[in-house]
Simulated scan of single mutants.
Amino acid sequence: MGKKLQITLSEDRVILMVCIGIATLFWFFVKMSQTYQTSRTVNALYTLEPDQAFLILPPAEIKAYFSGTGWDLFYSYLTNPNPVIQLDAGDYPSNMVEPTLLKAKIKKVYNDRIEILDTEPRYILLEYQKAAEKKVPVRFVGEVTFANGYNLRSPIEIEPDSVRIRGPYSLIEAINYWETAPCPALNLKTTTELECALKVPETGEIHRFPPKVKVVIPVEAFTQKTLIVPITIKNAKDSVRLSFDHVKVDFVVGMSRFKTLTRSDFEFAVDFENVETYQDNNTLPITPVRIPEGISGLNFVPKSVEFFIVQPPRDTLPASQ
């Protein structure tokens, strides 16, 4: 008796599951036969004559709003997962893809049973003009920092140092150089090579050839050096003597130039151009006249010097009382 009851309960459960499955399928078919609204992104490709370029880039993506049955929408997703339309600027003499033309273009990539309700943007402006091309220098843009005791050995090198740019005539004419995209190099201790992309144009269709450049940042260790440099006397009308005839010069220099820099590369001077022989103040500032490039942290002492007249001319001596 118990076994017969168990068999009956199992059969009832199977029948229940079959009924639920049939109801689910029926519900699914009913739902898929109903009309729905949805949106999809449509990619847009544009073509121009070879001697033309876009002054303002048209949108690369268009958001399209659709209406159709669940079956039609599902089928469109399966058969065309990445819809693309192609727009030839020559087909639009008014330089505008109007809403009706844009919707018609999108509808061609779908089946006829799907309705295109609207697009975003609703229309597309095609602004272009004659193309021009020229060669411009490249400017490196990027934060460069060095580890303690290191710095640039020589100026940063860019290879190639210039690139060709091509785009609308009015934009190309106003460009005198092209920057790299931000290309940081931090805490450097050795010479470093970077591959830096060129900056993306802010407006218009501007192509860069090549699209990337190599940036070489020469790095070396720096150390302090001290030199004793004689003071030069300029524009002295009389024989003069200085309280100091030299300055002590401290500076920081790269190791590659440490031995080659000598005191002859520097010049410090006192200038008597506007100095009266018997002025009350007999102190003059010491001025750096020639300093080699590529050094930093320059300091020298003393900063001023006293002077004394050795042999003043007789006609300038003060009258005796």
Rank of each mutant, 00 (worst) to 15 (best):
L16A: 11
T79I: 15
L284D: 06
A64M: 02
T262S: 12
T192F: 07
G149R: 12
S162N: 06
V141R: 12
V275I: 12
M96A: 12
P121C: 07
G149K: 06
N80F: 04
I175R: 07
F244I: 07
S67H: 01
E179T: 11
N274F: 01
K134F: 11
S256H: 02
S304C: 04
L55T: 06
I158C: 02
E11L: 13
D245R: 09
G142Q: 05
F28N: 10
Y65M: 03
D271R: 01
P58N: 12
P58E: 13
T287C: 02
C196D: 04
P302I: 15
C19K: 08
L102R: 10
G254Y: 03
E143F: 02
A64W: 04
F29L: 15
I62D: 02
T190S: 12
Y169R: 14
Y169L: 15
V200K: 12
Y128E: 09
K31H: 01
T35K: 07
V229T: 08
L298Y: 03
K259R: 09
R40Q: 14
N282S: 09
Y92C: 03
N111F: 09
V247I: 11
A174W: 00
P230C: 11
F66V: 05
E157M: 09
E179G: 04
P81M: 08
Y46R: 07
T283W: 06
E120M: 10
L25V: 06
K135P: 00
Y150L: 08
I175S: 04
K135D: 09
A23K: 00
A221R: 05
V14Y: 04
I156S: 04
F268Q: 05
S243F: 11
P58A: 15
F258E: 08
D250R: 11
E173A: 13
